[in-house]
């Protein structure tokens, strides 16, 4: 059954995109990740223009982060003060990121920048996860217990001004690092069509030393609002949010996530991370090949932006 997508301007088989949403939803339910960093490349690989993929995926992440954030909030796992500081940075980053998208599209460099961002971030995250999971699998095989967090140290972060007290996280730190982290995540959300949890979660754990139980809820709180703002800005400035495509992905994603969560409980943490790392690296290599491999066709055409519709 085909449906003509109003913004992507192409006739698409709805089952392909429902299935794609379901598959990525399954993985995100299984691994406990947002899935934007898998969904956007998949949409691009399937022929959706990169700008539409990014704008539409932002809308889908709103849906998945709303349900995630509510679940975390019910368990009292959201540090609202920390979340608000991250959000303030995130909104500035999102506005900046969308302007960057406008400029890059006009210059014809957006597709390249999206691919390059994915290769960079997926490459780094994928390799780190791969190394970490291999190490912990090895350790668990040799019988040693896996070490948890290292004890807190006084780092340079504690020397910064504008200190704030975050009760829920039991922290007294400067507001500058969370603002910067939030801002970076906002830019990535606008350019890459991701929630940015893969940057924010490790940064909160290792740089800010936020307790692990509030990290996911707090980052989901920020992602929910930042992707909402990003969706509105993309729709307003770039006309790249395809509501029909987003709905298909949401429906598939919601169903897939439920099955994924069940499947995830049956696998060990290290094995899960190893599988996810493999997947991330595979997507990274596919993206990288598009940038490095000699193309069959050196030319490309597109409608001039700024011309009438």
């Amino acid at each position: 059954m085909h449906f003509y997508l109003p913004i992507a301007e192409m006739s698409a088989n709805i089952f392909i995109f429902l299935g794609m949403g379901g598959a990525v939803g399954f993985l995100s339910g299984m691994f406990g990740v947002g899935g934007g960093f898998l969904m956007t490349p998949l949409l691009i690989f399937s022929g959706i223009p990169p700008a539409v993929a990014v704008g539409t995926e932002a809308a889908q992440i709103v849906a998945s982060s709303v349900s995630g954030a509510i679940a975390q909030w019910r368990r009292n796992n959201v540090d609202f003060k920390m979340g608000t500081v991250l959000l303030a940075g995130g909104l500035v980053g999102s506005v900046f990121g969308v302007q960057l998208v406008v400029l890059l599209r006009a210059a014809g460099q957006f597709d390249m920048v999206v691919a390059l961002s994915y290769v960079t971030f997926l490459g780094i995250i994928g390799s780190l996860m791969m190394i970490e999971s291999i190490n912990s699998i090895r350790k668990s095989r040799s019988g040693k217990s896996t070490s948890g967090r290292r004890p807190g140290q006084h780092s340079w972060i504690h020397g910064l001004p504008l200190k704030m007290r975050f009760h829920r996280s039991k922290l007294y730190i400067s507001a500058i690092p969370p603002l910067i982290i939030g801002g970076l995540v906002g830019v990535l959300a606008a350019i890459m069509g991701v929630g940015g949890g893969f940057i924010m979660v490790p940064a909160m754990i290792y740089l800010l030393r936020v307790p692990t139980n509030v990290v996911v809820g707090t980052s989901l709180f920020q992602i929910m609002f930042v992707t909402a703002a990003t969706t509105i800005l993309h729709a307003y400035q770039n006309h790249t949010v395809d509501i029909v495509l987003a709905l298909l992905l949401m429906i598939g994603g919601v169903i897939g996530a439920q099955f994924g969560a069940v499947a995830g409980e049956k696998l060990k943490g290290e094995q899960l991370r190893f599988l996810l790392a493999g997947l991330v690296i595979a997507v990274c290599i596919k993206m990288a090949w598009g940038l490095i491999g000699t193309p069959d066709e050196f030319y490309s055409i597109g409608r001039a932006i700024g011309g009438g519709h």
Partner: peptide
């Protein structure tokens, strides 16, 4: 509207 639809779907 897109955000309201998405948030509604999530809820």
């Amino acid at each position: 509207t897109a955000v309201i639809v998405a948030a509604g779907a999530g809820l």
